[in-house]
């Protein structure tokens, strides 16, 4: 995952507003399974019924503030990852969604001043902390995660870290 995370990410943007909650990302009526493929087929059903049929592997979600607020359901990032979304860019993330994404290895990027419309081509260079809207020429930068989180990501997720043994604080 570490090498994968460091690779440039390129994809088509799907734009969402502020405070997209996890009930919108995956409504509770679909929580009777933990299978990422089935969850993916209902991804974003609370906002856009057709998202799951429109999205292609590699696409990027770009959202406003407080993305993933509400319930702790890990099914939300699982469904996004299951669609093949290559990264979620948001002004800010709700804290449980944030940790779930880190824990399961869904690339997320916090970036506050990046302008995008649905359909724009986006390129992200995680190494340089650089994000570009190829369609409009708009660019922005973001900070790398602190070392603690980078280690979880580098390990390939939290359970991989557990396997490596407790590396302590």
């Amino acid at each position: 995952m570490s090498s994968k995370q460091k690779l440039n990410i390129k994809g088509r943007a799907f734009k969402f507003s502020d405070s997209v909650d996890t009930d919108q990302i995956i409504p509770a009526r679909f929580l009777d399974t933990s299978d990422p493929k089935i969850l993916a087929s209902h991804c974003m059903a609370g906002v856009d019924d057709e998202f799951a049929s429109k999205v292609k592997p590699g696409d990027i979600i770009v959202a406003g503030k407080n993305f993933g607020c509400g319930s702790s359901r890990e099914h939300a990032p699982l469904s996004i990852k299951g669609c093949g979304i290559s990264a979620v860019v948001a002004e800010s993330f709700a804290r449980i969604f944030f940790r779930n994404a880190i824990n399961i290895g869904l690339p997320i990027i916090e970036c506050s001043d990046f302008n995008t419309n649905t359909g724009d081509e986006i390129s992200i260079d995680p190494e340089k902390g650089h994000i570009e809207n190829i369609t409009t020429g708009d660019v922005a930068s973001f900070c790398e995660f602190p070392e603690f989180l980078s280690k979880i990501i580098a390990a390939g997720g939290l359970m991989e870290k557990a396997k490596e043994g407790n590396s302590g604080e």
């Binding site: 702790s72 997720g157 407790n166």
Partner: peptide, 18 residues
Amino acid sequence: SGVGSTDIAYAWVTDKVW
């Protein structure tokens, strides 16, 4: 604090949370 499911699995095997 509320956490996710992988956090629970991690806590089951380590007693810990980050």
